[in-house]
């Protein structure tokens, strides 16, 4: 790992510390980000964790037929995908620990204790201000919530279009539940279509081109 700047080594799976462009050999000396995010997630204090849970329930409100977002441990999920303090912020969702926590702290206990309307207003204010925290929270809630196996089961249960969805593409695939071709339809496909032979290609009339006028 590159430790050219004298900073602490990255934990396994985290982006490496890198120099700025033009220094110490350029800026692409990163490691491949670990599948699943950090092995040792960034930790949040109790209030920050409560803010995350409250934000999750504001972004995806509880519904009787669906798992509740705040019960899906999105706190740990977010901790796995936030860039730890001191390391270069190189990978989606491009959230650094310090700034992400500062944003959670700004929302604070007041956000947790607020009514649904209050929390909705607070998230809407972040969105309107184009605060990076808004997009980071929304993306992490969407990606986190919809990656949980219990949510996959709810999709199977609640949505006709999602009846067969099973989460990760493998090992099962969808070979057994994907419709095959209809032979009559394939026969009909032979009725339309043509091509020019090489020696049939001639100059076209360029005076008809709309963009030259």
């Amino acid at each position: 790992m590159n430790n050219a700047l004298g900073e602490k080594p990255a934990p396994f799976g985290a982006p490496e510390t890198t120099a700025t462009p033009g220094e110490a050999g350029g800026f692409f000396e990163t490691g491949r980000p670990r599948l699943g995010g950090l092995q040792n997630p960034v930790g949040f204090d109790a209030t920050q964790a409560a803010v995350i849970d409250a934000a999750a329930d504001t972004i995806i409100p509880p519904h009787p037929d669906w798992p509740t977002a705040s019960e899906q441990d999105l706190v740990t999920f977010m901790g796995r995908y936030v860039t730890p303090s001191g390391y270069k912020n190189k990978h989606f969702p491009f959230a650094t620990e310090d700034e992400f926590k500062a944003g959670l702290d700004r929302l604070g206990q007041g956000f947790v204790d607020g009514s649904v309307a209050d929390r909705t207003a607070a998230i809407a204010a972040l969105e309107k201000a184009e605060d990076p925290l808004f997009e980071q929270l929304r993306a992490l809630v969407y990606y986190g919530y919809y990656s949980r196996p219990v949510v996959t089961l709810a999709i199977n249960r609640n949505l006709p279009a999602g009846r067969d969805y099973h989460g990760p593409p493998l090992p099962y695939g969808y070979l057994q539940t994907t419709e095959p071709w209809d032979e009559e339809l394939l026969t009909q496909a032979q009725e339309n279509g043509s091509y020019l032979e090489t020696d049939e290609v001639v100059r076209v009339d360029l005076s008809q081109l709309s963009w030259t006028k």
Binding site: F92, S147, P168, P169
Partner: peptide, 30 residues
């Protein structure tokens, strides 16, 4: 590959991002 992982969709934005400027693996160039 991310195909066996619950987070397969998020990983498409990270180590499997299409654009090397986003993915930034050691073998990539800007």
């Amino acid at each position: 590959h991310p195909h066996y992982h619950d987070e397969w969709e998020l990983e498409k934005q990270r180590g499997w991002a299409y654009d090397p400027n986003v993915r930034q693996l050691p073998e990539d160039y800007p």
